[in-house]
């Protein structure tokens, strides 16, 4: 399944609604975007997802690390 936000083929169904399976929630294992089956196309379809909020997978390692990871202490 293609992630609407980062276009990776790493999205999958995460859960069904606990009551009456009223909806499904999906999750991308690459960018951790999640959405519900009831969401509009602007939030659930890779073609119509907001370009401003798309994530380029190549840029993920360049994202700010918060907080920075300190050097390991020598024992």
């Amino acid at each position: 399944m293609i992630c609407p936000r980062c276009d990776s083929d790493t999205a999958h169904k995460l859960v069904d609604a606990p009551v009456n399976k009223a909806w499904e929630v999906f999750l991308c294992d690459t960018c951790f975007y999640s959405w519900r089956s009831t969401d509009p196309k602007e939030l659930s379809d890779p073609k119509t997802y907001s370009k401003k909020f798309k994530i380029d997978v190549a840029n993920i390692p360049k994202l700010a690390v918060i907080p920075p990871i300190p050097p390991l202490e020598k024992k």
């Binding site: 951790f32 999640s34 990871i69 300190p70 390991l72």
Partner: peptide, 26 residues
């Protein structure tokens, strides 16, 4: 970020970041 996974924002000046920094060193 999953059924049992969370992401959390711990900014450098938050007290939780002090706890985290000491633990991550070890």
């Amino acid at each position: 970020k999953g059924k049992d996974l969370l992401g959390i924002q711990a900014l450098g000046y938050h007290d939780i970041a002090i706890h985290l920094r000491e633990a991550e060193k070890q």
